[in-house]
Each structure stands twice: as C-alpha cells, then as structure tokens.
Design a binder for these strands. Structure first.
Lengths: 219, 219
DNA sequence: GATGATTTGTACGTATGTATA
DNA sequence: ATATACATACGTACAAATCAT
C-alpha cells in the first residue's frame, strides 16, 4: 500500500495544465474547451470540468457562466500589483528569517550564496536559476511560517511566465547576486528591517527586469 | 438583459456554505456529504461536488481522494501563522496607504476614526464592529493595490470565526481604538514605516485577543 | 478479515444558454 | 432577426473505493 495516495485524475490534469500555462505552452486567452480537455487526457467532460474549476480558483484560468474557460490574461496593472505583493511578502519573510533563523540555517544560506558567485562569473544562467530558487526557498524555510511561505510561493508560481525571461537582460545575473548579497548580510546580522528593505528592493528589480519583456508599462 | 449575470447554482451554494462555515454554523470537522449537500439545495450531486471543490480551494473545506469532505479544522499553529501573515499584509497596506493616500482619503479616514471614539465610550460593540470593518477597508483602498487588498481580505475572511469574539474581552474596544489612533497618526504624517509597525502591532493584538477564545496556545 | 452499506469518481444524456451564419 | 451549431449546467447511472459491522 502506497504511503502517498495515487493522485486522482483531476489532480494530475490540474498539475499538467497549470504547468502548460505557467511555461507559456498555453498562451493567455487560449480557450479551454471542456470536451477538448477531456479528450486530451482520455477522460470525459466531468473531470475536465472540475480541473478547469480548480485552475480557475488558482487564478490561472478565467471562467464565466455558460462561456468557455480561457487562460487568464494578466493585465499590466495586475502584473505590477502582483509583483508588489510578492515584494511585500518576500520582505516579510526576510525580516522574520533575520529574526528567527537558526545558526545552522544562517550558515547554509551564507554557504550557498558565496558558492554561487562562481556561477555569475561563468555566466551560467541555467544553473543560477536553480540556485536562485534554492536561495529564496531557504529564506521561506527560515522565516518559520509555512503559511507565509505558501502565500509567496503561490504568487511566484503565477508570475513564473514573466520571471523566466529576467536573466536574459544584460548584467541582470550580476545585479541579482549583489542584491542577494545585501539580503544575506542583513540576515546574518539579524537586521530584520534591513533584510526586509533589501528583499523588497530585490523583488522590485526582478519585477522591472521581468515586465521589461512582457510589454508592461513600467510604474 | 441583466447587467449582473445570474450567479450559477454552484456559486450560490458556495456563498451559502462559506457563510455557514465562517459564521460557525458548520463546525470544524463536520463531514460534508456530496449527496446531503445536493439535497439541501435541491440539486444533484454534480453541482454539490463542484461547490465542495471550490470551498476546498478556498481552504474552508478539506478534501481527500475517495473520502468525505470535512469543514477545515484550523490548528493553533496554522491560526498563529495566518494571523502573522495577516499582520504582515496589513502592515504593508498601511505603509503603502501612508505613502499613497490622497488628501481626500486621509480626510475620510481621520473623520470616521474620530467619530468612532463615541462608540467606544458608549460601549457599542456591534456598531464598533461595523466601523472597524470600514476603517480597515479604507486602508486597503488607500494602499491602491487591489491585489494586496484581495489577499488580506481573503485571510481575514477565513479568520472571521476567530476574530468575531475578540471584542468580548474587557477593554478590547478601548485598546483597539487606541491602536487605530496610532495607525491614523502615522498615515496622516506620511510615516510609512510607523504605519506598518502600528498596523502589525494592532493585528498581533487582534490575534492575541481572538485566539484567547479559540483555545489556541499563545506564541 | 470478509461482506454489505455508503460514498466517491467518472461517463453520458438532456436541457439551456451563447455565439455565429 | 432567425435559425443553426456549439458549449455549458445539471441529472442520472454505474463502477470502484471506503467504511462499518
């Protein structure tokens, strides 16, 4: 008997479709027909319909009564507001991490951060993306609030299609590392306010770099 | 043709059930049978099932594969984390409000706040609850971020069953007003950091007062 | 444990609402 | 503007999983 329950049909459909949307394989405004979705996964309309409802609740899909569902189109205004909220939550997580991280946790953060300077010098974009995800995850863990971590992770996920392109900008890798450096310093010093401020500035920069490619007007 | 679309069956079921849960008419851990829910609203299992999925996405209902859904039971840990996240988001909203509110918006906030001191002196608990909701809404509007406002509103909604009892504590009305007073002062002065700090402290106090009745151990 | 009752998961059919020629 | 095509909303049926005895 498996300890992990065999994910239901709908769950796996949701996971696949969410991934398609977040990776841009399903473009914004694409109509999502219940029947077509069902066919794609070899099931009837019933589970397809439930998957669409779930995706709608996540904000990835738009649903109106008696109308076809469509992939959510983020307006520039909404993008800015989501990056702003993400910045605020990252700032909160960084502040709490500065106050609450154990010695061990601080050590690990400092370690992986310093090792990553190597990636910047080599211009290893793909590897840096992985490191970057890990860096932020360490802060979420360090803030010792699963709920806060979940909130910010959810927003990040929805913004993933935009954030993906940021490291194509020249110098962005370098700047990102420097921003991380300031966050790490503040956290190691236990400077909560400083960590919050640096984290907020970091995400603001990410937002700038990301929306630069999304055709969104800057604030 | 109505400008407002006639909400679907599922939507109204969700609204009713959410209200029942949030107002405590459906206690935590109550099993929610698909068939029973359908009967209650005079519909078949299909819409009932979709309503439960929706409530699950909102966090109000717990669903496991092939098992009955139940009303979500908040653990003390989760409660604390939710109040903490709410405090952080309220702090962010207050900070942004201090920076962005128009003269008119500041005027309105100051007005209704000062008028409310009357309610405190009269001990008008029910009226104070209404004023309190309005006070916070003005700050959400003043932060000029619909998305941030939506985030904090959602969390507040889920914590409503706990928050409801807070004003039963002796002196809580009085303290609440004083906390509001410090927030208003900071906002009127355009002191973003101060407003954030006071808002955070306010929600922390709300959390203390609320969980006091919920049997949750204090931090 | 095995068996019967209950409940969920999925398929499919029909009615109704929306879009399009 | 009407009719036709099409998509969704909901009901019903049955298989599979879970629970209770």
């Amino acid at each position: 008997m498996p300890l992990i329950r065999p994910g239901t049909t709908v769950d796996s459909m949701v996971a696949t479709l969410a991934d398609d949307i977040v990776h841009g394989r399903l473009a914004a405004d694409t109509p999502l027909d219940e029947g077509a979705i069902g066919n794609r996964f070899g099931v009837s309309r019933t589970p397809a319909r439930e998957a669409l409802r779930e995706l709608n609740a996540m904000g990835l899909v738009q649903r109106l009564p008696n109308r076809r569902a469509t992939v959510t189109l983020l307006t520039p205004k909404k993008m800015r507001e989501m990056f702003e909220a993400m910045a605020e939550l990252e700032a909160s997580a960084a502040r709490l991490a500065a106050e609450r991280m154990s010695v061990q946790e601080r050590q690990t953060l400092a370690d992986i951060h310093h090792k990553s300077s190597n990636l910047v010098q080599r211009g290893a974009v793909e590897e840096y993306k992985d490191y970057n995800a890990f860096f932020h995850r360490l802060i979420y863990i360090g803030c010792h609030s699963d709920y806060l971590a979940e909130l910010v992770t959810t927003i990040k996920y929805r913004l993933a299609p935009l954030r993906r392109a940021q490291f194509e900008l020249p110098q962005r890798l370098h700047h990102s590392w420097q921003e991380h450096d300031r966050i790490v310093s503040a956290i190691l010093e236990g400077d909560g306010l400083g960590a919050a401020e640096q984290a907020r500035a970091h995400i603001a920069a990410v937002g700038q770099a990301s929306t630069h490619f999304a055709g969104a007007e800057q604030l």
